[in-house]
Simulated assay, not measured.
Amino acid sequence: MTDQIRNIYCIGRNYRLHALELGNEVPDSPLVFTKPSHAVVPMNGNVVTLPADRGEVHFELELVLRIGKALQPGMKPDECVDGLALGLDLTLRDVQSKLKAKGQPWLEAKGFKNSAPLGGWVPYPGEEALKMSSFKLIRNGEQAQLGNSGDMLFGISELITHIDNAYGLGRGDLIFTGTPAGVAALQDGDVLEAYLDDKLAANCTIKLS
């Protein structure tokens, strides 16, 4: 799965309620961080193994965009996108809190192995059409998160333009677009199911080891 992935850009605090639930300031421009491509692991009914000795591991369900071509003059930004998936931006929350307190980068908390479980790709409907769809995470049979791209602080076109201008964006790059409120610590044996509207888009069982 990682062979065709180049850069993984992630957006922090892109849903107001999620920023507030963690006690963070709401940003006035996109907050971008990255994950290594080796963080990606399939989320297709498999078992995802995560560290059990580094404090809480939090789930964060996100809409993930796959870039199919570079942004060219005259193109609409979302014309660069050729695929959509649901994925998890898993976070070592205790590690992240310590890094934030020291003013250090988040990579250790965000980029560990298996920190980016990813479901299968589906056709991208376009930025406006996507706002008609919701996505949700079901944890052990109960809804944990519910989101809609229309609630993003920074929309898809704005994210693509910002990332392209600041860092560059091309074929094979992924964008994790941010998570809605409802994140929490995972437990060993948790069964996670991610839905786009009412269609199962990704699922896995968590093993803390």
Rank of each mutant, 00 (worst) to 15 (best):
E21L: 00
D198G: 13
N114E: 14
G55V: 02
L159G: 02
G170T: 11
V47A: 11
L130G: 03
A185E: 09
V41K: 02
P125M: 10
L186A: 05
L65Q: 00
N46H: 09
K131Y: 09
P125H: 12
L99I: 06
F135C: 00
C204F: 15
L169C: 02
S29V: 14
H18N: 07
Q72H: 11
I156R: 03
A184C: 03
G189W: 13
S209R: 13
L22W: 05
A166F: 08
K35P: 01
V26Q: 02
G126N: 12
A70F: 04
T179R: 04
G155E: 13
G45S: 07
L174K: 00
N203L: 10
E127W: 09
S29P: 03
I156V: 11
F33Y: 09
K199M: 14
Q4V: 12
G12L: 00
L84P: 01
D53N: 13
R54F: 11
Y167I: 10
L88V: 09
E62Y: 07
L22G: 01
S29C: 13
R6M: 09
T205Y: 07
A109N: 07
I67H: 04
D94F: 01
L196G: 02
P42L: 11
T49W: 09
G172V: 06
I138K: 06
I206T: 07
V26M: 01
Q104A: 15
G172R: 08
P105M: 11
A201N: 07
D28S: 13
L208F: 02
S29W: 10
N165Q: 15
S209Q: 15
R16L: 04
Y195C: 04
V95Q: 07
L169S: 06
T91P: 04
L107C: 09
